[in-house]
Design a protein around this nucleic acid. Structure first.
Length: 345
DNA sequence: GAATCGTGGCA
DNA sequence: TTGCCAAGATT
């Protein structure tokens, strides 16, 4: 059965490939631009195509090549990434771009790609296959789901990953591994989805053991998730002469490396309890509820009423230009709350 | 192996 | 409203 999958899948992909910005076809006989492939793959880690599209457009317009990105200020790159989440990706993006520029271009093997910061097993395989036409076994959450159903792999994740990878290896063709990978991901994104299995439209339905066994939707079996804890904290809005006090968060940890409102330490794996960075009276500025991956945060916004110089590093940022500060969504929402309150909305 | 790390859309 | 999920990597 294994050798019948790729021809069917590649034929389906030729007719139904999604039209995505990073798939803009190069000239005839040319390979895709490795820079665009790499950039899109990093952005797409745990992120939907719809969310990525505008960021990919912004980045490629402002930094058309990996050399341009390597020469950019890290602060500008972090600000441009703001809102996309998982900010370690942006930090690693800078490191990887500079390493690539230093060595004179992207490496063209999976093994060497894997050594770049931010490229794990999936991304190294995807870039090798898509940008360099290497045969690589590309397994993302889509492939994981499609293969678990296709082969009726009953073991629960994450234990089933080894078997899923071996099964994917067995159906990956020697040629066109990049198209095969993208076809499998498109199939998982549009036909064989997490909430649906539109088997009547699937090119692999005749081969699918999960369908033959009657209930492909239950695959892959996933472990029960732990309940998300709730945490509370406070962000401080300190304003003077039309400018608000912003800090830069530490390079590791939550929202690491991003500009932010000062806060009371809620991200340090506990509720916030630190003192504000400036003395004086405070008034309530509302509450933002924000869900992170592993906890839900209730963030109160405290507005400074008084004078005094904030302690520690920071910068006064013009309130009228807050969009350009590159605040992560949590703090952008907190700022919106303050400004909306002021407008009397 | 298990935790950590964002955000927005959808049912 | 809540839970699930998305082209995962790192420690």
């Amino acid at each position: 059965m294994e050798d019948r999958v790729a021809p069917l899948l590649l034929d389906w992909y030729a007719r139904h490939a999604r039209d995505l910005p990073w798939r803009t076809p190069p000239g005839i006989g040319e390979r895709p631009d490795p820079y665009r492939v790499w950039l899109s793959e990093v952005m797409l880690q745990q992120t939907t195509t719809a969310a990525v599209a505008p960021y990919f457009a912004k980045f490629t317009l402002r930094w058309p090549t990996v050399e341009a990105l390597a020469a950019a200020d890290e602060a500008d790159i972090m600000a441009e990434w703001a809102g996309l989440g998982y900010y370690s990706r942006a930090r690693n993006l800078v490191k990887a771009a500079r390493a690539v520029a230093e060595r004179g271009g992207f490496p063209d093997t999976e093994r060497e790609l894997r050594e770049l910061p931010g490229l794990g097993a999936y991304t190294a395989a995807a870039v090798a296959a898509i940008a360099f036409d290497r045969r690589a076994v590309v397994v993302d959450a889509n492939v994981e789901r499609v293969v678990a159903r296709l082969f009726a792999i009953e073991d629960p994740l994450p234990g089933a990953r080894k078997a899923i990878r071996e099964a994917t290896d067995a159906i990956t063709p020697a040629e066109r591994a990049g198209d095969f990978a993208q076809g499998m991901m498109d199939l998982g994104a549009t036909i064989c989805t997490a909430r649906d299995a539109r088997c009547l439209l699937c090119p692999l339905s005749a081969l699918c053991r999960g369908r033959a066994e009657g209930d492909p939707l239950r695959l892959p079996v996933k472990p029960a998730k732990k309940a998300k804890p709730r945490r509370s904290g406070t962000a401080f809005w300190i304003e003077r002469d039309g400018a608000v006090w912003l800090v830069r968060r530490a390079g590791r940890g939550m929202l690491g490396g991003m500009r932010a409102l000062p806060d009371d330490g809620w991200s340090a794996r506990r509720d916030g309890e630190d003192d504000p960075p400036v003395a004086g009276a405070w008034k309530a500025g509302g509450v933002v509820r924000h869900g992170f991956t592993h906890f839900d945060l209730e963030l109160g916004v405290a507005i400074h009423a008084g004078d005094g110089v904030p302690t520690g590093e920071g910068e006064w940022w013009p309130v009228g230009q807050l969009e350009e500060a590159g605040l992560p969504t949590l703090f952008a929402r907190a700022a919106q709350l303050v400004l909306a309150m002021r407008e009397g909305v």
